[in-house]
Computed example of a mutant assay.
Amino acid sequence: MMHFQTMGPADQSSNNHDEIEGNVSGELYEVEDTEAPVLNNNVATLKLAFNTVLKEPPVPKSLPAHVDLLTAVQHFDSENWSSVRYSEVQKLYCSQPAFTELETNDELKPFDKFSNLSVLERGFAAITQALIKQGETVESCFDSLVTWARTTPKLTPESLQDKIKELFIEGPFQKISNDVLQLACGHRADLIQQRRDSILRSVKDKYFKESLRKIPPSPQFIFQKDPLSSAIEKQGGVSKCFWPVRPPTQNKPAAQAGPNQTNNAQKAPAQDAYDPSGLLITMPRPFLPVPAQGNYNFVPTA
């Protein structure tokens, strides 16, 4: 008689070599991913950037806030524009020597053809000394501020603000700064008035000249653009209102002579104040613009 032995679950598992026990980790039996990698389409491509640079303007554009401030202190677009004076303030900053116009040597006085420029030179000399005093005042204010901070036991933002206000706003620094601005704006108003008077000398009718004189300058034009254009148009145009411009008389060299043979060649100034019409060079001295606020020391020439 044949006997059959019954096998339990444990025996079946040990004999079945193809089966994997449930507690065995599957890390060694993971199926390797054989799919192709996906390309990232968001990667930026390399491109050459092309650009051109515009030429810088000869005079940069002003900030609107600065234009508004200058219009206010210079009183442009106002009938009071010519009332910005400098004479009284200038006396405070002129001194001998150096800080006034340089005196012409006695031997050279007969040859000083443009002594009226001494008025402008005196103004720059006064502004120079005012700026020097302003710098000295700033140094003194900072020294006082530092000394005060060292000796103040309880320094607060409020006390610091009050001290700065005392030194820089209520002290001499603010006065000197206003004096410098008064000198600069006053001299500029004087120069603008001289330029306007020089133009108005060519107006034919004296009543029309006075009407043009009432047109104030603007921040951009020596006469407000629209009122001036309207006034000239009502009078029939520029040719009806102004005398024709006379070309300056110059001694021209002979045809066979080279351009460097003449001794009357005009030289351009060193600081871009070149007058292409030769007006200031060829104009007789009695007709040079007279400063409105300075002293014009006219000495007739032979």
Rank of each mutant, 00 (worst) to 15 (best):
E79H: 13
F76H: 07
F50L: 15
E27H: 07
H66W: 08
P58F: 04
K47H: 08
V24I: 14
Y29R: 07
R85Q: 14
L39Y: 05
P37W: 05
E35P: 02
F76Q: 03
L54D: 10
V53G: 11
A36L: 10
P37N: 05
L54R: 13
E30Y: 03
R85P: 00
T34S: 12
D33R: 05
E88H: 08
E56D: 09
N16S: 05
V89H: 00
P58E: 06
P37L: 07
N23I: 07
G22N: 13
S87G: 06
P58I: 01
V84L: 03
L48E: 11
D77Y: 03
N51V: 07
V38M: 07
D33Y: 02
L39E: 12
E32P: 06
A65R: 06
F76N: 07
N23K: 08
D18F: 15
A44N: 13
E56W: 01
G26T: 02
S78P: 01
V38N: 05
N42Q: 10
Q12E: 12
A44L: 14
N42K: 12
N41F: 01
H66Y: 09
N41G: 07
Y86T: 03
S13D: 09
L54Q: 11
V53E: 11
F50A: 14
S87Y: 04
Q90M: 15
E56M: 06
V53M: 06
S14D: 15
P60Y: 01
S13Y: 05
V73F: 07
A44G: 09
S83Q: 09
E56I: 01
P64C: 00
A44W: 07
E88R: 10
P57T: 03
G26N: 03
E79K: 15
N16Y: 00
H75F: 05
L63W: 07
L46N: 04
L70D: 02
S82V: 03
L39F: 08
A72C: 10
N80I: 04
D33F: 04
S13G: 09
S78A: 06
S82I: 03
L28N: 12
S14E: 15
D33T: 05
N51T: 12
A49T: 15
A36P: 13
H17P: 08
P57M: 03
A49D: 15
K61S: 00
